[in-house]
Structures are given as structure tokens and as C-alpha cells.
């Protein structure tokens, strides 16, 4: 069953994330793929995340495909103009990649090439429209394609943005532009997420809640302070603190598993997206504790 079929069947889906390496040694990447194979429904492959130059998403998507994983190509508008984006989309499709996640992309000032010229020729809403056009056999200018793409296209949303209203307006635009599924920024407050889902459920799209495992109280404070759109509630920070240094990570895994279990049992959303960020080996543990394996 493909990622799209899984979502459409009503199965509670799980996606994970693969961050391409900086350099040509892909042994660790392949090791992570082996860990996730047969457990998750699809893997997102990030696109020069945090504007740090790495192997491109497209190549690692193809390698994931060859290793029996279904890839979701993350595509940002930071580094390519509309010609390059469309060309890469066609290229991805002919390589057998059928899922794409359209995003704006972190600004170059966050990364390791701060003097780079940011492109942003188009942005996420317009990119979704482009994917829709390609799926209908036309490029964005209306020129006919010899063979249409068959992408299942998604987008991102930050449910805990402050203020949230402009984010929700953009969510609506993304739905109208053709987004079929959404993966969210990391969430930690299930009650607040339920409020967001109350809004999102008015639209015919699937929503996967984003998770980043808390390794320690320090990490939670760091996320609160430096990562836009992430709010870790104080009670979770206290829980991590109480666990002590030795058991903090284990507690973080339990928190994630507990939240995922609740989302599934209460049918709050359609699945989860686990961003392990270097702890890919922990994904199966989380899934097991959440009752998903």
C-alpha cells in the first residue's frame, strides 16, 4: 500500500525523516533507511535543511526508493527558480518519486553559505499550483507536457504560530492550491492541537502531526527560545527535569509515544510525522511504545 493509499484508506500513517549527509559517504543514511524499512509508511527527505548545503533531496529519495522505502521529496523554493523547480519535479517523477512536500525553505542566513543569493522566485502556495498543473499535463505557463506527472502533493503548517490567523489563511490557500496532505511543525500540546484540527477538519485534506523527541529539559527550553512555532508546555519540561539526566531521553521517548497514542486513539488526526534528527534508531522504539508496531 502506497503512502497515498494508506492515507486514503483511513490507516493511521507514520512518516519519518531522513536528512541527507554533507558529503558523499551515505553509509549512515542507508543504515537509517534499513532501520525504518517496513515500519513507516514513507520517509521525508529534507532539502538542504536549515540552509546547510548537503546531498540533494532528489538523489536520496531515489536511494530510498531503491532500498524499499517510499520517499516524500521535500522541495523548497530557496535555491531554485521556477524553471529548475519544474525540471526537478519532472525528473523526480520519471525516477519513480510520487510524493512531494512543497515548502518555502529556511532563509540562507540560517545556514552555512550566508552570502548565497536567496532565490524565492516563487513560494510554497505557487509551487503547489505548479505541481497541480504538472499533474494535469501542463507546465505553469500552460505549455503542454509530453506525459503528465502523478504527484501526491503536500504542504506544511505551523499550528502553534503566534499569531496563528495569518498561518491559517495560508493553510486555506495551500488547500485551494492543491495540497492533499499536511505535515505540521512539531507539536507538544495536544489540547491546542485539537483546536487546530477543529479548523483543519473543515477541509478535505489529511493531517500528520509533527513530532520532535525531547532529549532533555535543556533541549525543550532551547526549542522554546529559538525555534519559531514550537511551544513546549512547562509541565513537559518539569516531567523531563524530574526524570533526571540518565532517564531524560527515555522520558522524552515516552512523552512522544504517549502523545502519538492519544492522537490515534482519539482519532484527532490522520497520522504522525516523526523528525528524529539523528536518532533514527529511536523511531521504531517510539512506534512500539505508541502501539503502532
Amino acid at each position: 500500500m502506497t503512502f497515498k493509499e494508506a492515507l486514503e484508506s483511513g490507516k493511521f500513517v507514520v512518516t519519518a525523516e531522513i536528512g541527507p549527509p554533507k558529503g558523499t559517504d551515505i553509509s549512515e543514511t542507508i543504515h537509517h533507511m534499513e532501520l525504518l524499512k517496513g515500519k513507516v509508511d514513507a520517509v521525508n527527505v529534507t532539502d538542504n535543511q536549515s540552509a546547510v548545503m548537503r546531498v540533494n533531496s532528489l538523489s536520496i529519495c531515489k536511494i530510498a526508493l531503491d532500498h524499499g522505502l517510499e520517499p516524500i521529496l521535500q522541495m523548497t523554493c530557496r535555491d531554485r527558480n521556477r524553471i529548475a523547480l519544474q525540471s526537478d519535479l519532472l525528473g523526480a517523477n520519471v525516477l519513480g518519486i510520487h510524493n512531494v512536500l512543497c515548502m518555502t525553505g529556511d532563509h540562507v542566513s540560517a545556514g552555512d553559505h550566508k552570502g548565497a543569493k536567496p532565490v524565492y522566485d516563487i513560494e510554497s502556495v505557487q509551487l503547489l499550483k505548479i505541481v497541480d498543473a504538472l499533474n494535469n499535463g501542463r507546465d505553469m505557463m500552460g505549455n503542454e507536457l509530453k506525459g503528465a506527472t502523478n504527484f501526491f502533493q503536500g504542504a506544511v503548517v505551523t499550528p502553534e504560530a503566534n499569531p496563528v490567523e495569518p498561518q491559517l489563511i495560508k493553510f486555506e490557500k495551500k488547500v485551494k492550491a492543491g495540497a492533499r496532505f499536511f505535515q505540521t511543525q512539531a507539536i507538544y500540546d495536544i489540547e491546542k492541537f485539537k483546536e487546530f484540527m477543529g479548523f483543519a477538519r473543515r477541509f478535505p485534506v489529511k493531517v500528520l502531526a509533527g513530532f520532535v523527541v525531547l532529549k532533555s529539559a535543556g533541549m525543550a527550553n532551547f526549542l522554546n527560545k529559538f525555534v519559531p512555532g514550537i511551544k513546549v508546555p512547562q509541565e513537559l519540561i518539569d516531567e523531563l527535569k524530574a526524570a533526571g539526566k540518565e532517564k531524560a531521553l527515555d522520558t522524552g521517548l515516552n512523552i512522544t509515544a504517549r502523545h502519538i497514542r492519544q492522537l490515534k486513539e482519539e482519532k484527532i488526526c490522520d497520522g504522525v510525522h516523526i523528525m528524529a534528527i539523528g536518532m533514527e534508531d529511536k523511531v521504531p522504539i517510539i512506534m512500539e511504545r505508541a502501539g503502532l508496531l
Binding site: 540560517a110 524565492y120 502556495v125 512555532g229
Partner: peptide
């Protein structure tokens, strides 16, 4: 907007300010 976005804020907006 440092990204010149035409259709709303990006996910980098934090408390009304820019990620940059």
C-alpha cells in the same frame, strides 16, 4: 519580507517577527 513571499508568512515567523 527577506524571502519576498507573496502569499502569507512562512513557518519562521515567531511572535510577529522574522526568522532572519
Amino acid at each position: 519580507c527577506p524571502k519576498g513571499l507573496l502569499n502569507g508568512p512562512c513557518g519562521g515567523m515567531s511572535d510577529g517577527n522574522c526568522e532572519v
